[in-house]
Amino acid sequence: MRKIVPDAQAALDGLLFDGMTIMAGGFGLCGIPENSILALRDSGVKDITAISNNAGVDDFGLGLLLQTRQIKKMVSSYVGENKEFERQYLAGELELEFNPQGTLAERIRAGGAGIPAFFTATGAGTLVAEGKETRVFAEREYVLETGLTADLALVKAWKADEAGNLVYRETARNFNPMMATAGRRCVVEVEEIVPTGSLDPDGIHTPGIYVDRLFVGAFEKRIEQRTVRPRQAAPIPAATGAEV
């Protein structure tokens, strides 16, 4: 019960400062901490380093904090959906660090697990490896990547119990579980808080130890690429992914 607060503003109270590093969960607009992002915008906190797979779109998600120039630097794997991002970056107004998506996920996992660095073959021989230590294992080159932590992690889950145990839904899980472990403070917004004991302990995705503050948010859940198939179609169209 001690973790539950009324809203995003209360959840972020006392946790924000200029120049801080913030992780925000989500893939595209799926599973993003919508409520905390709005509260962050309203707080006026600035010079944020934001660690997030994507940068939202111009008028939703982290794109809102780009519009208000509250973000100084982004650490992401793909920002193709945000025109304002590209404009600010090409104009030299925004710092950018691209990480391969799997490297980003593992850096956050490692950071939360107390692992300072790890070797990965991803990016060997590319721009990503420049300036980094490399080492050969079994005749293959690997790049040393460091673990990532943040001052604050903003997480979106589906359900929580009063102890802060979390369950995510479908592909809205994405980066949220690792980020929950890698923030010195972790603020979680959910669609529903259920009584402690009503979630299956075997089905908990994030144990409550990682959660500092918890609230029920209101979610727009905007869809980025609405793609459907006709009801009558005989062949089933492809519904497959991109390296995004």
Binding site: W158, T171, I223, T227, V228
Partner: peptide, 23 residues
């Protein structure tokens, strides 16, 4: 991964890596 959803059955929590709604 399944096919694209029928119209009206899109689920914002269920997307592919191209951010398209899927089933």
């Amino acid at each position: 991964m399944g096919p694209f959803p029928f119209e009206g059955e899109e689920d914002p929590d269920l997307i592919n890596a191209g951010k398209q709604t899927i089933t």
